[in-house]
């Protein structure tokens, strides 16, 4: 249909782009993870499994990884808790205002991630908006210090940032449900609640899975929110990677952590896609 030259012209640039900026870096990272750093601070290109052994034996790494997963799981849970009802309300009960509300949900995505993270810092800090207010109304005598520089602050911020990402796929899946199925359910005697649990929710499961995967995977790899708001107790695995590639100058160990996370994420995506397929009926 199209000439050979045209097809080449169209397909080669993106392939080159992906190869140079994605595949080659991954490959390099893969190699680094099997190398090591000498005492004098140079990278030794000798192949060994020491980095992976260190990850398994030193508790700080896998404990941080587990904490990161626990934070990501909470973010996933709370963003579902906010995102699903929001998507349901917009899809089924917003009437003519649907588009307006939809835009309102999307607008935060246009605001820089950093600005939103800093906003929470101003709100949660010792002299922040929340503490000042609490002291002003005499709810507390001293500033609450668990608000900022804690896993709580990280979960809160990440939930705020990633809720639109869970909202979108859920909303899309709810919008795809033919409305006559809801009418048919009512017609067959099901109350609105029964209809929700037996028809609407099962049909929205692909969106729920996609949204949950977004929230979990995106927050698992996040390093800015813990950096800005996490404090020592809110450190996540990506912060360790950042410091290993930076100040600690141990690229091989950093690369091995990155590869482990990559494996976890690919596993999750694969798993959630299989589940989504199982629950899709279009």
């Amino acid at each position: 249909m199209f000439s050979r030259a045209y097809r080449t012209a169209v397909t080669v640039p993106p392939l080159v782009w992906v190869a140079v900026f994605l595949l080659v870096p991954y490959l390099l990272m893969f190699c680094y993870s099997f190398w090591s750093v000498s005492d004098s601070g140079t990278i030794v290109h000798s192949w060994n499994l020491d980095n992976y052994k260190e990850l398994l034996t030193k508790p700080v790494y896998w404990q941080t990884l587990l904490r990161s997963m626990w934070i990501a799981a909470r973010v996933m849970f709370f963003s579902m808790l906010l995102g699903y009802p929001l998507a349901y309300f917009l899809s089924f009960h917003a009437g003519g205002r649907k588009d307006l509300y939809y835009q309102l949900v999307i607008i935060p995505l246009w605001v820089s991630y950093l600005v939103r993270a800093y906003a929470w810092k101003t709100i949660l800090g010792t002299d922040g908006v929340l503490n000042t207010l609490l002291q002003y109304v005499h709810a507390t005598r001293h500033p609450l210090d668990f608000l900022l520089y804690s896993p709580f602050a990280v979960v809160l911020t990440l939930t705020h940032i990633y809720t639109p990402f869970t909202f979108l796929p859920i909303y899309a899946s709810l919008e795809h449900i033919p409305r006559n199925l809801v009418e048919a359910s009512h017609d067959l005697g099901a109350t609105p609640q029964q209809t929700f649990w037996r028809v609407i929710f099962p049909l929205s499961i692909p969106g729920v899975l996609a949204g949950a995967t977004f929230a979990f995977v995106l927050s698992l790899g996040d390093f800015l929110a813990p950096l800005l708001l996490g404090g020592p107790s809110g450190i996540m695995i990506s912060n360790i990677v950042v410091s290993l590639f930076g100040a600690a100058y141990n690229w091989p160990l950093g690369a091995s952590i990155s590869l482990c996370m990559l494996a976890i994420v690919i596993g999750l995506l694969f798993f959630s896609e299989r589940l989504e397929k199982k629950w899709s009926f279009s």
Partner: peptide
Amino acid sequence: VNTVFQSYALFPH
């Protein structure tokens, strides 16, 4: 009262 819908509206799941 029960209805037979024009596009049947069978539950796909």
